[in-house]
Amino acid sequence: MEFDSSAPIWRQLKDEFTRRIAVGTWAPGAKLPGVRELAADLGVNPNTAQRALSELERDGLCKSERTTGRFVTDDSHAIDTARGELAQAAADVFIARATGVGMQQSRAIALIEQRWMHHDHDPETPTPTVET
C-alpha cells in the first residue's frame, strides 16, 4: 500500500480496511489479522495499525473478542453504510475533478452513465481518456 503524505497514515489504513470490508475482501464474521501482522505486512508501526482498527471498531465495522481477536461485523446495515460512504467520497472526488475542468453536470451524468454501461459489459477493459 502506498501512503499519501497529506493524510495521517492511520486514517489511510482505516479507509483501506473499510474498503476491504465493503467489497468483501474481509468477509462478514471473518477474523481479522492481528495488529502486528497487519503492521508488518503494511510496513507501519503497530500503534498506527492499532489506531486504525480501533476506529473501525468505533464505527461498528469490527468487534473484539477478548481471547480470540477481532472479527468483521456481521451487521449488513453497517457494511452497507460504509459502502455508501465510500461511494459518496468517490463521487465527491469525481465532482470536484469534473467541475475543475469545466464540465457541466449534465455532461458529467452522461459520462457516468456511459462508463457504467461500459463497465457492466467489460470490467477488464481499461478506461480510455475522455474529452470534456
Results as ranks from 00 to 15, higher is better:
residue 81 T to W: 00
residue 97 R to N: 14
residue 68 T to F: 04
residue 82 A to R: 00
residue 81 T to H: 06
residue 70 R to Y: 05
residue 85 E to T: 09
residue 94 F to R: 06
residue 60 G to D: 04
residue 100 G to A: 05
residue 54 S to L: 10
residue 55 E to A: 09
residue 104 Q to I: 08
residue 60 G to Y: 04
residue 79 I to N: 01
residue 63 K to M: 14
residue 74 D to Y: 10
residue 82 A to E: 01
residue 105 Q to I: 14
residue 65 E to K: 08
residue 78 A to D: 04
residue 98 A to H: 05
residue 77 H to Q: 11
residue 78 A to L: 08
residue 99 T to D: 12
residue 102 G to T: 02
residue 104 Q to C: 05
residue 94 F to T: 06
residue 104 Q to Y: 07
residue 98 A to S: 09
residue 80 D to M: 09
residue 63 K to E: 12
residue 59 D to G: 04
residue 60 G to L: 08
residue 90 A to D: 08
residue 69 G to P: 01
residue 70 R to F: 04
residue 89 A to G: 09
residue 83 R to H: 10
residue 76 S to E: 12
residue 97 R to M: 14
residue 57 E to F: 01
residue 62 C to Q: 00
residue 75 D to K: 12
residue 54 S to N: 13
residue 69 G to T: 07
residue 101 V to M: 15
residue 101 V to P: 05
residue 66 R to P: 15
residue 73 T to M: 06
residue 81 T to N: 07
residue 67 T to M: 14
residue 75 D to Q: 10
residue 56 L to Q: 00
residue 55 E to Y: 09
residue 72 V to R: 00
residue 94 F to Q: 07
residue 82 A to P: 01
residue 56 L to C: 06
residue 84 G to L: 15
residue 102 G to F: 04
residue 66 R to L: 15
residue 64 S to P: 11
residue 55 E to S: 07
residue 89 A to F: 06
residue 78 A to K: 01
residue 69 G to F: 05
residue 91 A to S: 10
residue 87 A to I: 09
residue 85 E to V: 04
residue 82 A to H: 00
residue 105 Q to Y: 09
residue 92 D to P: 03
residue 88 Q to E: 15
residue 65 E to V: 11
residue 99 T to V: 08
residue 65 E to T: 10
residue 75 D to A: 06
residue 63 K to I: 10
residue 71 F to R: 01
residue 85 E to D: 07
residue 67 T to W: 14
residue 102 G to A: 05
residue 70 R to H: 02
residue 79 I to K: 01
residue 94 F to P: 00
residue 75 D to R: 06
residue 73 T to P: 03
residue 100 G to S: 08
residue 81 T to Y: 02
residue 67 T to H: 08
residue 86 L to C: 01
residue 76 S to K: 12
residue 74 D to F: 05
residue 86 L to F: 02
residue 83 R to N: 11
residue 66 R to V: 13
residue 92 D to Q: 08
residue 61 L to H: 00
residue 83 R to L: 10
residue 75 D to E: 09
residue 99 T to G: 12
residue 67 T to A: 15
residue 59 D to Y: 04
residue 84 G to P: 03
residue 84 G to T: 09
residue 65 E to Y: 15
residue 70 R to P: 00
residue 63 K to C: 11
residue 90 A to C: 14
residue 63 K to F: 15
residue 64 S to N: 10
residue 93 V to H: 05
residue 68 T to H: 09
residue 86 L to A: 03
residue 66 R to G: 13
residue 71 F to K: 03
residue 65 E to H: 14
residue 72 V to S: 00
residue 88 Q to K: 12
